[in-house]
Design a protein around this nucleic acid. Sequence first.
DNA 1: GGGTGTGAATCTGTTCACAGCT
DNA 2: AGCTGTGAACAGATTCACACCC
Lengths: 211, 211
Amino acid sequence: MRIAEPTVERLIKYHRLLISMKQGNSSVVSSRQIGDMLGIKASQVRKDLSYFGEIGKPGVGYHVERLCEHIEQILSSPKVWSVALVGVGNLGMALMGHSVFQSYKFEVKALFDVDPEKVGQNIMNIHCWHIDDIARVMKENDIEVVILAVPAVEAQTCIDKAISSNTLKGVLSFTQAPVILPKGVLFYAVDVFVELEKLLFFLKEKERNIS
Amino acid sequence: MRIAEPTVERLIKYHRLLISMKQGNSSVVSSRQIGDMLGIKASQVRKDLSYFGEIGKPGVGYHVERLCEHIEQILSSPKVWSVALVGVGNLGMALMGHSVFQSYKFEVKALFDVDPEKVGQNIMNIHCWHIDDIARVMKENDIEVVILAVPAVEAQTCIDKAISSNTLKGVLSFTQAPVILPKGVLFYAVDVFVELEKLLFFLKEKERNIS
DNA sequence: GGGTGTGAATCTGTTCACAGCT
DNA sequence: AGCTGTGAACAGATTCACACCC
C-alpha cells in the first residue's frame, strides 16, 4: 500500500513525539493529545494511524510504546544507507554536528569539498575527498545518497559528478539552485530562501488585510 | 485576492529563476521552459501566472524582465522587516553567511545566544545579546520576526521570552521541537530531520516495489 | 506552428460525523 | 462517558483540453 507524502511526514513527527513521550509518565495517549501537541487535527491523526490496522483502544487511546514501535516498523529500512556529504562549509559542518546525523538509519561514509585546507583531512573522523574523486569513492563505498550543501553555482557540477558514479539513488539538497537529475533519482530539497520568503509574504498579506 | 501557499512557493521559485535569466541572452521565455527548469508542469506555470492578468504573449511566451518585475511586485513588502537570529551556533552562523541573508527585504538587527564567549560581542557586525534580554531588545528595535536556530530543548524557552516582547509576528524555526505560539503569530519550520527521513522512507519503498 | 489563458475534470488530501467498542 | 476507526462529504490543487492569439 502506498502512503502519501503528507502522511509520511506526519508519521515521522508522531514517531519523534512518541520517543520523547516514552520517557514521560503516561503510557497512553489519545489522538487529540497528539494532535494538540503537533498542531494537527485529531481526526487527521486517527486517519493516519488507522492505515495500518487497529492499534488504538476505543475509550482509552494509543499505547505509547506499542504505537512508537509500530510506526518505527513502518518507517524502518532493511538496511543502513551510505551517505556522502558534499560541501563542508558552515552549513555542512552545522549538519554534521546536528543530532539528526547521529542516526542508525544511515552512515556518512565520505565528505567532499574543493577547499585544499579540507581535502585529505579527517573531519569529525570522516575522510574528506576532493569533489573530483566522488564517482570513484561513491562506487567503492556503495554510496547511494548525497547530501548537497554547496553554493548554488556549484550544485549542478557536483551533482553531475555524483551521477557519473551510477550508484546515486537519492539527493537531499540544501542549495537553492534547481538541479537536473536523471529520472529515478529521488530528490528532496530544504530551501531556506523559499521558507523565509513565504513567511515574509504571508506576514505582509496579513498586515494588508488588517489595515 | 488570496494566493494559495503552493502558488506562493512556486512564484518565489519563478522569481529566483527569472533573476538569473535576466543576465542570460534570451529576453523571452515560455511556460514550458520555466517548468522544465524547475520540474513543474507547463500548465501549472501558466495557471500560476494567469492569476494576475494576462502578461504572456500567445505564440511567444513571457517577457523575462517584465515578468520578473511583475512577480517582484506581488512578493514585495511595503517595509523592511527587522529580524532577530536566536542561536549563533554552527547553524546560525551558516545562515548568517548564506546569501539569502543579504536581502533587501529584511535586516538582522540583533543576535541572541547564551554562550558567554559570544554574548556582548559583535558577530559579522551585529551585536549579540544574552537571550534573557530579548524582550527588551526586540521592543527597542521593533523586531517582529525571529529566526530560531537553537537546540530543540531550548526552543520553547527562547520563544516564550520572545513572545513576552509583544512585538513578535512571525517565526522561522530550524529546530525539530514542536513549539507552542499564541494564535496570530505565523510559523514556518525547516525540518532537516523530517526531510531526511522522508527521503530514506521513499527510497526504501522504491526498492521494495522493485524487488 | 507555437504558445497563452482558462473552464472543466480529475486527483489528492482533509474534515466531518457517527457507529461501535471499552 | 470517552475515544477509535471509517465511509462520506468537502476543500484544495493539479492536470487536461481546447479556444483563441501571434
